[in-house]
Design a protein around this nucleic acid. Structure first.
Lengths: 180, 180
DNA sequence: CTGCTGAGTTTGCTTCTGTCTAGTCAATGT
DNA sequence: ACATTGACTAGACAGAAGCAAACTCAGCAG
């Protein structure tokens, strides 16, 4: 069972969840992560527990420093540091607000780039739901119809795609044309 | 523009990507993360850069220790430590294999739980693609039709759902019935 | 003028993440 | 018999991540 039916076009694993690799990527050694993997770039911004749970709270509606710090359980010092990094990274932006009888302060709101992080958060939550001894404390529902949220990996043609049905390749063109 | 059209049923932010909160969760203070958030449970297993990029390589077809270590660029020591944790966490499992003229060794293959991590990886990759100065080196294609992969947040009824159209609530029942 | 509050910053400390070098251990090649 | 190789383990270290407690700073309440 160690791959004796190999070699057609892609060279997949036995029946594991492994993707195929095509094009220049058929030889995995043609690519090193230092050539900048999108996943690693993402991790530079949200590769810590504190960053992710602050984003969770931002989506849950926390804007003010105190709420963000308290709801995440982070220390003030770390919350401040991480929020600064999230602002620098363009996931959050600061917006002045003023409560009556108080000076102007800054609140943290999601930018477009921060909002685009939503699928990652949902994917992580759904995956975490499936783990052992999970009681899934938070549930996400579509406010339109009340049904539970889930994520789906799909191709541009609308097919639901598993990892086995996925081919990885190396993009050569900058990013002009649409689909091969 | 600081929330003067508030209060209907949910209490959303202005027009930020903020979710609504309903039920017991309408009061955010009714929930603390120590009550075990799925996201935080997920982060305990894959909350480090090394864990995530090892999973990336597992999906890209690396099974053997040397490939996993070299392709991720991690040191042997860290690769060994992290792989052990991923095995303990149930994302990978060890399977004996034997190359001709060599002793029996262990290779690392994805478990069902590891395969279920695929959407998280795709979501992170797609989000990373959208960042500044991204050249999106790896591209994922549906091997069936060749179209590019993407992720979608949908509800059980099939509607595409944005964070604004999402309500968060606290699950009270263990996890028996299907949909509210 | 004094105290209080919200939003931080600073300092000191521990733990975790990660690297580098060296060493182990089994089996095969020479 | 000896060196080699793949897959690790052990030890020493730098640097981030994280905490707790104390400090700052602006403006409002008294």
């Amino acid at each position: 069972m160690v791959n004796n039916v190999t070699a057609e076009l892609r060279q997949p694993g036995p029946d594991d969840g492994v993707m195929g690799r095509v094009g220049r990527f058929a030889n995995r050694d043609a690519w090193t992560a230092e050539m900048s993997c999108s996943i690693e770039r993402a991790l530079e911004l949200v590769g810590t527990r504190s960053a992710v749970i602050l984003m969770r709270e931002a989506f849950l509606g926390a804007h003010r420093f105190e709420d963000l710090a308290r709801h995440t359980g982070l220390s003030d010092a770390l919350a401040a540091k991480r929020l600064k990094k999230l602002v620098e990274g363009g996931l959050l932006t600061q917006r002045p607000y003023r409560e009556p009888g108080s000076r102007t302060r800054m609140e943290y709101v999601l930018t477009d780039q921060g909002r685009a992080f939503f699928p990652v958060l949902v994917a992580m939550m759904r995956w975490g739901d499936q783990l052992e001894n999970s009681t899934a404390p938070i549930e996400l529902l579509h406010s339109g119809c009340g049904k539970r949220l889930d994520i789906a990996v799909k191709c541009a043609a609308g097919h639901v795609v598993s990892s086995e049905q996925t081919d990885a390749t190396i993009r050569t063109r900058p990013k002009a044309d649409s689909q091969p």
